[in-house]
Design a protein around this nucleic acid. Structure first.
Lengths: 208, 208
DNA sequence: ACAAATTTAGACAGTCTTGTCTAATTCGTC
DNA sequence: GACGAATTAGACAAGACTGTCTAAATTTGT
């Protein structure tokens, strides 16, 4: 395991103040001195960790965006699939959980660092997702007034049932993710879906 | 400021490991020895803080539940009001923010303590909220299949636009809370509202 | 195989923190 | 005012951690 990865793990478990450089060294399989050689001090190491996590998470998010159903065949199924991928590959994976925890625990202590995250993260991903929904609406698949609101609500709904697990830093099971995404997308489409056929309604009620 | 309140403040700002008993003493306006007299050690003090916050938050939540619109006059306005009260009095206030942060930062370190919170908090409040929605549905105001899912989604939608602020431990402005609640409830009612009149749709679109 | 660069183990000073102890002071109550 | 309980300031030992230093060992490139 690289120094950065080990540091991320320890910083997350113990917090910045509680993190022990010796422990990071052991976990990374290097000597303490090597850490001090690569990263001047604890704070610099911490910054490097956050930067690394932010980059990787953003890369993952944009990669997942590429699989957004721009021309959906089955809108509900396609959006559920997208929500699941979003959760599994960006929000519930190691990097996502670690970054979220570091932001929550140390965000107030390093305003400029996390302002950078905010600009590079949500500041870029939310509008990008909103644009996808706007295109979907323009193509007649959705009835959306405000794509920004819709994008935020889509993610909120997809994660609605994972909140408690997230709170405690846990990793939801695949089944929980699928459940939450399914319920969330169904509600999303009840609100923003267009011309739902009677058959679709029937099917939805039957499988609830 | 009481010892517990000062301790809550410092534990939140600095984390358990980073919290300094001397600082808590200064902030509480007592000597360090008094803290050790009342609470045997740092860990016991921390436990007392979490217990206190959990109790107060639960009390606030159930108090707010009493204002749930069981017989709504204007369902949208009443639900928005409820969502705003929920946010202002339970989620965004001092106790709510502190408890959330402590759970996020130290939850994994004290499983039994936060299991207690989980049982007393979400474990009791979510079903209680679900029961309200079930009653609303039974009275013909909503079309809800699964009240538990609806309750979780209601809260997720009401907070959808506050997530970034929550992440960094910030306190959203009254306006942000109202905005998020308004958008959230509108979407909720688009999904679960019954027999929406054409006039209501028009009004909603006009004010968007 | 050799030389340079990197890594390692361990010791080390300096700082900080917890939790205890003691003696003096303040407070509440009669 | 007097007495017992609570609080205070400060010193203190024990332990932990950071960041530096040195000399030996290991890796790397040629």
């Amino acid at each position: 395991m690289s120094i950065i990865d080990a540091a991320a793990s320890v910083f997350c478990r113990e917090g910045f103040a509680g993190a022990n450089i010796d422990l990071i060294a052991v976990e990374a399989g290097v000597s303490r001195q090597t850490i001090y050689n690569h990263h001047r001090d604890k704070e610099k190491l911490f910054m490097a960790v956050v930067r690394d996590l932010t980059e990787r998470c953003n890369a993952g998010i944009f990669a997942t965006f590429a699989s957004f159903p721009d021309q959906p065949k089955d809108l509900e199924a396609d959006l559920i699939g997208f929500a699941v991928r979003m959760n599994q590959n960006c929000i519930c994976n190691r990097d996502g959980r670690f970054l979220r925890k570091l932001i929550q625990t140390e965000g107030e202590r390093y305003p400029e660092l996390f302002a950078e995250w905010r600009d590079q993260g949500p500041g870029r991903t939310w509008p990008a997702l909103a644009a996808r929904f706007a295109r979907l609406a323009h193509a007649g698949h959705l009835a959306v007034d405000d794509p920004d609101v819709a994008a935020r609500q889509f993610l909120a709904l997809a994660n609605a049932e994972l909140q408690t697990t997230f709170m405690l830093g846990g990793m939801p099971s695949e089944d929980e993710v699928l459940q939450s995404a399914t319920h969330g997308v169904r509600t999303f489409l009840r609100a923003f879906g267009k011309r739902r056929s009677a058959a679709a309604v029937e099917k939805q009620l039957a499988s609830a």
